[in-house]
Nucleic acid binder design. Structure first.
Lengths: 252, 252
DNA sequence: ATTGACTCTAACGTTACGTAATACCTTAAG
DNA sequence: CTTAAGGTATTACGTAACGTTAGAGTCAAT
């Protein structure tokens, strides 16, 4: 029994081009070529293709597949085990990205409905509950993200919110002072300010390198720009530059 | 304050080449070019790059990023929401792949320690426990996979195993008969046999299109080949071809 | 003026094929 | 036997997002 490219392609679900390509790179050669230069495959090649597609499905690159299918069982188990680590990393990363998206949506949508201070420094508890309910019901963000950030401030009293708010104001003023003193964003003084900003953010959620710098993305939206620009025209850019430097240095 | 490519690159963590490239595709143009044709960036571009990197980190392709950053907040929320679906699919897929790998390792390693019949039709319960413990302790497979497959046969008595075994023998014999009658792998008769095989496998775990066809990958290992080839030299290839056809037709 | 660090453009390499374009071959029908 | 449909071949460009030379001009400091 022999298969032409089309037969084998339809049987296995790959395209004719793919078989041509696999022949070209030596991954799967036909059993023989006819006088017409046609490719003819036999059962042996069907079995080989079967294995190739299995590993391809798992996300192995073709050059590794070539090594694997020519190796013994031990090699295969080794490859599968190390591939597991890669996939687990993918998994973690994707989960982190989903959380970041949830947080960003929360903030992007939130700022159109709340005053900046509420968004930035905390929430009016009545409005907040209705708002969170809407977000969860509509599937915009996972309950987990809200729970996490709320858990951290659950016990806060009005004084805590006021302190947090005045601390923030104070921090921004010191940034402005630094700008006026023409300090560099990378200077130790400014970096200490960033450190304080980072710690303040941490109360709500622990930022990673990317998500911390990603905060700058939020600060650029119109409503926030108004807030920052009113303090000093260069405040936003200065803070973002300083945050970038901080992230590059401090956060792995 | 202006930044040269190098300055901006070091600040933001991207390469100079990337800035060149973003200029080339129009994603991020410098504020102006010097007489020397050098690229000079200003704060505005720093902010823009900041946004670009945020969305890049989330896995958006550059052409979409271009649309997004030039759009309004509503567009951004839309994009983030639809991107969530993609990421969730990735998540599910990756989790499925990890399970497939676990199962494959379980089988690839198992077959060197167990007789074919035990692996294929069930396990000697004493040897099995020690073996599973080893697998879990060494981190080779997740407890979940073992639990799942074991849960399904937990209540089985010796008669059940014997029946499963004799059913399998019977099935193989009918495949051999089909070969001798020169039936096609795609014929209704043979496809009914595959259906029975599929249902039998399902007792342990529900296969997807890929994982079912992936079974063929296992059957090709030496120990299994002996088993199949002893029944009929063409049995293995015939079954795999029939399984492929079945998967393409029946499993979305 | 020299040197080292930086910048530019141009162009090929990467992965795993998809998509023509052009030409030859095979098979079944008329 | 011719013809038309459909299968097959080779060649080669396109894709995404840059990395990596390579050659040549530029800037800053000694």
């Amino acid at each position: 029994m022999h298969y032409t490219v089309n037969k084998l392609a339809k049987l296995s679900g790959v395209s004719v081009r793919t078989l041509h390509f696999y022949d070209e790179i030596g991954l799967l050669k036909p059993a023989y070529y006819g006088d017409n230069n046609y490719r003819y495959y036999e059962e042996e090649q069907l079995l080989m293709l079967q294995q190739i597609l299995f590993y391809r499905e798992l996300g192995f690159p073709l050059n590794e597949i070539q090594r694997i299918v020519n190796g013994n069982d031990f090699d295969k188990v080794e490859a599968l085990n190390s591939h597991k680590l890669i996939l687990k990393n993918d998994l973690d990363r994707t989960q982190a990205l989903l959380k970041t998206i949830d947080k960003t949506i929360l903030l992007l949508r939130g700022k159109t409905k709340m005053r900046n201070e509420e968004l930035f420094y905390g929430f009016d508890s009545e409005k907040q509950k209705g708002y969170e309910k809407y977000l969860v019901d509509s599937g915009k963000v996972s309950q987990e993200v809200i729970d996490q950030s709320r858990k951290n401030v659950k016990h806060w009293k009005k004084e805590d919110w006021d302190k947090f708010k005045s601390d923030g104001d104070e921090l921004h003023k010191e940034f402005v002072t630094a700008i006026e003193q023409k300090l560099s964003a990378s200077s130790p003084e400014v970096q200490k300010l960033v450190e304080r900003h980072y710690q303040a953010i941490k109360i709500f959620w622990t930022p990673t390198k990317e998500s911390y710098v990603g905060l700058g993305q939020l600060y650029q939206t119109p409503e926030f720009r108004v807030f920052y620009d009113s303090r000093h025209p260069d405040l936003l850019v200065f803070m973002i530059e300083a945050m970038m430097i901080f992230a590059a240095r401090e956060l792995s």
